[in-house]
Nucleic acid binder design. Sequence first.
DNA 1: GTGATAATTTTATGAACGTTCAATTATTAA
DNA 2: TTAATAATTGAACGTTCATAAAATTATCAC
Lengths: 202, 202
Amino acid sequence: MARTIGSNGKTTRAAIRAKSLALFAESSFAAVSMRRIADEVGVQPAALYAYYPSKQSILVDLLVSHMEELLAAWEEEKCAESPGDALERFSRFHIRYHIKRADAVFLSYMELRALEPEGFKEIEALRKTYEGELRAILEAGQASGEFAVKDPPIAAMAILAMLTGVNTWYRSKGRLSQAAIADRYVAMVKGAAGASVEAAHV
Amino acid sequence: MARTIGSNGKTTRAAIRAKSLALFAESSFAAVSMRRIADEVGVQPAALYAYYPSKQSILVDLLVSHMEELLAAWEEEKCAESPGDALERFSRFHIRYHIKRADAVFLSYMELRALEPEGFKEIEALRKTYEGELRAILEAGQASGEFAVKDPPIAAMAILAMLTGVNTWYRSKGRLSQAAIADRYVAMVKGAAGASVEAAHV
DNA sequence: GTGATAATTTTATGAACGTTCAATTATTAA
DNA sequence: TTAATAATTGAACGTTCATAAAATTATCAC
C-alpha cells in the first residue's frame, strides 16, 4: 500500500490538527508521541511529516491559530459602548469562547514552556494583545469614573485569570447553565473592577 | 566506585525532591527523564530507584506534600475573625505562600493529568479541602450579610483562580512590591465577594 | 580492626522515541 | 491511456527511555 483510497491532503491535515489537540490536552506535549498521533489519525507515523516538519511545529500551529482565532472572534464581537457594558460583554464572550475551546485553551496555558523561543515570542505577543483589550476597557472605566479600579494592568490579569478559571471546573452537565455561570462571573468581575454597587449584588 | 564519599540518604533524597521539582516545573513531567534528574542530583540514574520505586512516585510525593504543607500553613495562619478580615487574611496568605512556592504550585496545576487514578484522587481531596476553607469564609460573610456573594462555591473557585493567577506574571524585580500586589488583590477579591463598598476603592 | 549495613556504581535490559527516505499506489489532467 | 503529481507506506536510523540486578565501596557500631 502507498496512497490510501480516498485519501486527501486537506482532510488529513485537519485530522492531524484535531487529534493532536485532543491528545496534547489530555496528556501533554511531551507525553504524546508521533506514533500515537498517527494511530489516532489512522495513518503511518511517516505520513505526519508530509504536513509538519516536526512535532514541535504541530504545537506551534495549534497555539498560534488558537490565539489568532480568539482575537478575531473578539474583534467581531466587541462594539462601542459604556465601560460597564463592555466589561460585561467581554466577560461573557471570554467564558463562552473558552468553554467551547477548552482543549485549545488548556493547551495554550500549559504548553507555552514546551515552545522554543521564536514560537514562544509569537504566542506571547498575541496574548498581550488580548490582555490589552480588557485593559483598555478598564482604563476607560477608570477615566470615566465608572470603575473604582486602582491598577488596570493588574486588574486585567486578575480578571482574565478568574474568567479562564471557569475551564478548570466547568462540566456541561453541571448544576448551572452556562448563562447562569456567566451571570455570576459578570457580577464578580464588576465587583472586582469596583463597578456600580448594585452590579455586585446581582 | 560504588558508595560515594560523604554520601548520605537524607541529603540525596532531599536533592532528588528539589531537583525533580525544579525540572518538572521548568519542563513538564513527561519531558524530564530520570537521567536528567540523576544528572542534576549528581548521581547515576539507578541510584534514584533506591529512593523512589518509579518516576511517577516522585511526582506523587511532590504533589501530595505540597498540598499538605499548604493546608498545614493555612491552619497555622487562620484565626477567628470577621468574614471580611478572614477573606483578607486568606488572600494575603494565598498570594504570599504561592509566590514563595511557585514551582510546586505550577506543578500542582499542570501535572494532575499525569497522575494515575489513586494519586489523582488523593490530590483532588486535598485541593477540595483547601477550597472549602475559602468557601466557609464566603458562606459566613453571606450569612452575616457582610458579603453580597450569590454563589459561594463558585465564588470560591473564581477567587482562587484570580489569586493563583498572580504566579503567572509575578517577578520579584517587578514594578510592585509583593505587599502592593496583595493590596490590589485584596481590594479586587473583596469587590468580587461584594464586600463593603469602600474596600473596593482601596 | 572487623563485620554489618547503607549508598551508589556499573552494566544491561527491551521498548519507544523523533525522524528520514525510497518505494508504491491513488488521483488527476491531457 | 498515459504521464504527472498527490498521498502514503514500510523499513530503518541512532538515540533515549524507565527500570533491574549484581557488584562495589563508604560508613558506623563494636
